[in-house]
Design a protein around this nucleic acid. Structure first.
Length: 771
DNA sequence: GAATGCATGGTTTTT
DNA sequence: CCATGCATTC
C-alpha cells in the first residue's frame, strides 16, 4: 500500500475527498456507501472500477456493476474507459438488473428450457402484453375483467413474484377471498406466459434465482466469475434483487453497494428499504462509508433539501452539507391554474435563457404525474422553446411501432399469440379474419398441440396430400390462407435476411406499408416512426446472423424512459417525472404542481389518514429527490386548481412547502392569478405559507436576476476568439475556451473562474471583453 | 365482418 | 376530457 500522499497523486484517486478515496480503496469485503445526493457516488463507482482493473489486476469480466438505467451503465462504462486512458473494457458486465437477468437466461439455454420450461426463443412481455395476458387469465378463471381490474391483479402478481412466491405458495398464503381469486388468476397467468414462451419483467429476476436453485453449479460458476460486485441505487432494490446479489456475492464477498435511504422512491414496486438498512446485519464485517458533502447544489438548495427530509420520522438522522456558495433563493410561485402555471414556466425559461446565460438543456421541468406534462407541452408548443418529454408516450409504445414489433416477435417466437392477434387485428393482411375464424384455428391448434400460427400455415396450399388443417370455409378460409402463406414465407426467410430486409419484407407483403395514406399528415408522421424503427434495426445487422433479431427485440423490451433520452446538441428543455429524474442533475429545475393531492399524491394522504405514514414519507423523499436535482436555481410552482377529467378541482399548496426555510424562499406575487383565477380560494395552509413568506421577503442577496442588465440591443458584433478574457455580470470573469460560428453569432464555451464552463451565445450573453 | 356511435371510467410513480 | 370498449347497424 502506498503512502497517503502518493495515493492522492494517483490518477485514480485524484480529485477525490477522503471518504471517496476510502470507498475506492476498500476493495476487500462488503462495503456499504451511504451517499447523499450530489456527493460524487458515480465518481466513486467509476474510479473504483478503474482502480480494480488497473491497480489490482482484476479482469473486467470479473466485475459486475448493476445500475438503475442502461444509460447510466453506458455512461459509466465510458467514464471507466476514459480513466483507463481509452482502454477497452468490453468484458465488464454492466447494466440493469433486468438486462443482467436476461443475460443469465440467455447464457444457459439448455438448463433454462429443461428446468424452467422457458425455450431459448422466449420474448419479453411489456406492460401492454402483460395487461392483455392478465385480462385473458381473468376470463379463463371465469371472472370479468370489468369487475376485477387487470392492473390491480398484475400489481399483486408482480408483488408476489418480487417475493419469489410461486402461484402455489401464493395460494397457500392466501388470507382473504380476494387473495384466493388472485391466486387462481396468477396460476393461469403463469400458464399463459409459459404457453406463449414469454416472460414478464419480474421473471427476468426470479427465473435466474430458480435456475440457481435447480442447478447450483451454474450459480457456482457465476460466483467464481464475479470477484467484485457493485450495485448502485441500492435503496431501490427489492427482495428478488437482494437475493440475486447476495447469492452471487456469496463466494468472494466483495460486495459494494451504494445508496441513499432518503432517495428510496420505489416502495410501490416492492423496493425494500430494509435491504440497505439491514446491510450491516447481513454482513457484520461490512465497512460503512458516508458521503455527505454535496458538490452539486448551492447552499440554499442543500439546506432546503435537508430541512424538508428531516420531517420524515422513518429515517436515519444525518445531515447533508455543502461548501458551495449560497446561491439564489428558491423561487415559489402560485398560479391560478395549470395553464397559467405552464405559461409561467415557459416565460421564466425564456428569461433564464436570454438574460441569465442558461441554455435550454440546462433546464428541467419535473412533475409528479405524467398527466401534468400535457398542459406543459401545450405551453411549450406555443412558445419557441424546444423541449423533450422523457417518458410520456414512449416511442416503443406507439401503435405503429408495436405493430412492427409484433410481426417480428411472432417470427422469432411463433408461440406468441398476443403478437399474432395484434398482427391479425392491425395489418391489412389480417382483414377478413374475425373471432369465428380465429376460434376455428385455435380449436385445431389445441387439438393438434400446435401453435396458432401453425394453424394459419396449415391452411396454406401444400404439396403434402390431405394433411390436417383447421375447419374453415369461405371468405374466412381465404383470408387465413393468405396470412399462412405470407408468414410461412417470412418465417423461412427470417434467418437469411438482414433485419432491415426482414422489415422491408414484412411491410410489403403484409400490405402494412400500403395501408398508410401518403396524403395524411398523421399517417406520414406515423410512417416516419416506422422508418425510425428500420433505421434502428440496421445497427443490429452488424451482429452475427441469428443474433440480430433476438438482441434487437431484447433491447427494445428493456429500454427505459431515461435510456431514450439522448444528449442533444441543439439544446432542449427536459420535461420529466420526478421518478425518472432520479440520478440526473440540471442547473435549473422547476418542480411543478407542488400541491396537496399531487405532491403528496392523494393516495398517500389517504394512507396517512388511515394510519400508514409510509407512502407519505415516500412522497416527501420524492420531493427531496426533485429539489436535489437542481444545481443553481430551483423554482417551485403550484396552481390554485386544475382541470382533472375535464372537471375543475381546487387545490391547496403542498404541506411540504411549510418546511422550506423562509430565508431561502422568494415568493413571487400573484397579480396574474387574481386576474383570471376561476375560483377564489379560502385561507389554506398554502395561503399562510405564502403570506408569511411575503412578509419576510427581502431582495435576493445573490446578484442573480436583477443585476443582469438587458443586453444592449445595438451591441456591435464582437468576434470572440479562444483565449480571450471576458466579464459577465452574473458569472464574473472568464476565459473563452471555444468559439463556434453560428449564422450571425457565436456559440461560446467560457470557463468562468467561479462558475465553471458555461456555453453562451454571443448575441445574447451580456459579455464585456477585458484585457 | 366492418363502420359508426354511445357509454364508461381512468391519472401515481416504471423495469 | 379523451381513449377504449361495446352494441347497433349495414
Amino acid at each position: 500500500m502506498t503512502s497517503p500522499i502518493a495515493e492522492a497523486a494517483d490518477p485514480f484517486l485524484a480529485g477525490l475527498n477522503q471518504a471517496q478515496q476510502d470507498a475506492v480503496l476498500a476493495t476487500s469485503g462488503p462495503v456499504l456507501v451511504v451517499a447523499g445526493p450530489g456527493s460524487g457516488k458515480t465518481r466513486v463507482l467509476t474510479h473504483r472500477i478503474a482502480w480494480l482493473i488497473e491497480r489490482e489486476a482484476v479482469h473486467p469480466s470479473e466485475i459486475l456493476a448493476v445500475t438503475f438505467t442502461n444509460k447510466a451503465a453506458r455512461e459509466m462504462r465510458h467514464r471507466v474507459e476514459a480513466l483507463l486512458g481509452g482502454r477497452d473494457v468490453a468484458g465488464l458486465v454492466m447494466g440493469t438488473f433486468h438486462s443482467f437477468g436476461v443475460r443469465l437466461l440467455r447464457q444457459n439455454p439448455g438448463l433454462v428450457a429443461d428446468r424452467l420450461g422457458v425455450l431459448p426463443n422466449f420474448v419479453i412481455y411489456d406492460d401492454g402484453d402483460q395487461v392483455e395476458t392478465a385480462k385473458r387469465s381473468i376470463i379463463a378463471v371465469g371472472l370479468d375483467p370489468k369487475q376485477i381490474a387487470p392492473r390491480r391483479v398484475l400489481s399483486r402478481i408482480s408483488a408476489a413474484k418480487s417475493l419469489l412466491l410461486t402461484p402455489e405458495e401464493f395460494a397457500n398464503a392466501a388470507e382473504t377471498y380476494d387473495d384466493e381469486v388472485i391466486a387462481r388468476i396468477y396460476k393461469d397467468y403463469e400458464r399463459a406466459l409459459r404457453k406463449a414462451n414469454a416472460v414478464d419483467f419480474d421473471d427476468l429476476l426470479a427465473l435466474p434465482i430458480r435456475l440457481f436453485d435447480a442447478a447450483p453449479s451454474v450459480l457456482e460458476r457465476y460466483q467464481q466469475q464475479f470477484r467484485h460486485i457493485l450495485v448502485d441505487e441500492y435503496q431501490d432494490t427489492n427482495r428478488v434483487q437482494y437475493v440475486l446479489v447476495a447469492a452471487l456475492a456469496d463466494k468472494h464477498r466483495n460486495l459494494f453497494v451504494v445508496g441513499d435511504p432518503d432517495q428510496s422512491i420505489y416502495g410501490w414496486r416492492q423496493a425494500d428499504i430494509r435491504n440497505i438498512l439491514d446491510f450491516k446485519n447481513d454482513y457484520p464485517d461490512a465497512r460503512e462509508i458516508h458521503l455527505e458533502l454535496n458538490y452539486r447544489s448551492t447552499r440554499r438548495i442543500v439546506e432546503t433539501a435537508d430541512r424538508v427530509i428531516r420531517d420524515n420520522t422513518q429515517r436515519i438522522d444525518r445531515r447533508l452539507r455543502t461548501e458551495n456558495e449560497d446561491g439564489e433563493r428558491i423561487i415559489l410561485r402560485e398560479l391560478s391554474d395549470g395553464q397559467h402555471e405552464a405559461q409561467f414556466v415557459v416565460d421564466e425559461i425564456r428569461r433564464v435563457t436570454t438574460r441569465d446565460g442558461f441554455r435550454f438543456d440546462d433546464v428541467a421541468v419535473m412533475y409528479r404525474t405524467g398527466a401534468q406534462s400535457r398542459v406543459l407541452e401545450e405551453a411549450f408548443r406555443r412558445s419557441e422553446i424546444t423541449y423533450r418529454i422523457v417518458g410520456g408516450v414512449r416511442f416503443y409504445e406507439r401503435k405503429e411501432v408495436k405493430d412492427i414489433l409484433a410481426a417480428l416477435r411472432l417470427l422469432y417466437n411463433p408461440s406468441d399469440e398476443i403478437s399474432l392477434e395484434r398482427v391479425i387485428a392491425n395489418y391489412p393482411l389480417g382483414k377478413g379474419i374475425g373471432p369465428k375464424a380465429l376460434d376455428a384455428i385455435r380449436t385445431w391448434a389445441t387439438l393438434q398441440g400446435r401453435t396458432l400460427l401453425d394453424g394459419f400455415i396449415a391452411l396454406a396450399p401444400s404439396l403434402e396430400a390431405n394433411h390436417s388443417a383447421p375447419d374453415l370455409v369461405g371468405s374466412g378460409r381465404a383470408a387465413a390462407q393468405k396470412v399462412g402463406v405470407v408468414f410461412a414465407e417470412l418465417r423461412d426467410e427470417a434467418n437469411r435476411l438482414a433485419l432491415a430486409e426482414l422489415f422491408d419484407a414484412i411491410v410489403e407483403r403484409t400490405g402494412y406499408r400500403a395501408g398508410f395514406d401518403q396524403e395524411s399528415e398523421e399517417d406520414l408522421e406515423r410512417w416516419a416512426n416506422v422508418l425510425e424503427v428500420r433505421a434502428d434495426m440496421e445497427r443490429y445487422d452488424l451482429l452475427p446472423p441469428g443474433e440480430s433479431l433476438p438482441t434487437y427485440l431484447e433491447q427494445v423490451s428493456l429500454v427505459s424512459a431515461v435510456d431514450e433520452m439522448e444528449d442533444d446538441p441543439q439544446g432542449r428543455v427536459t420535461l420529466i417525472t420526478l421518478h425518472s429524474a432520479k440520478g440526473l442533475e440540471f442547473p435549473v429545475v422547476f418542480i411543478a404542481g407542488v400541491e396537496e393531492g399531487l405532491l403528496p399524491i392523494s393516495r398517500a394522504i389517504e394512507a396517512d389518514a388511515s394510519g400508514d405514514p409510509a407512502p407519505l414519507e415516500e412522497e416527501r423523499r420524492l420531493f427531496y429527490v426533485g429539489i436535489t436535482r437542481a444545481e443553481k436555481r430551483l423554482y417551485l410552482t403550484l396552481a390554485g386548481g386544475r382541470a382533472t377529467y375535464g372537471r375543475w378541482q381546487a387545490s391547496d399548496s403542498s404541506r411540504f412547502l411549510a418546511a422550506v426555510p423562509q430565508q431561502h424562499l422568494h415568493t413571487l406575487g400573484r397579480r396574474e392569478a387574481a386576474r383570471t383565477g376561476p375560483s377564489p380560494r379560502g385561507s389554506s395552509l398554502g395561503d399562510r405559507v405564502r403570506q408569511r413568506s411575503l412578509d419576510d421577503w427581502a431582495p435576493p442577496a445573490a446578484p442573480a436576476r436583477t443585476t443582469a442588465a438587458p443586453a444592449a440591443p445595438a451591441l456591435p458584433t464582437v468576434t470572440y476568439v479562444t483565449g480571450q478574457r471576458v466579464f459577465h455580470p452574473k458569472f464574473g470573469e472568464g476565459t473563452i475556451r471555444e468559439a463556434v460560428d453560428r449564422k450571425g453569432e457565436q456559440e461560446l464555451a467560457i470557463d468562468f473562474k467561479r462558475h465553471g464552463v458555461k456555453r453562451l451565445l454571443s448575441s445574447l450573453a451580456p459579455l464585456e471583453v477585458i484585457g
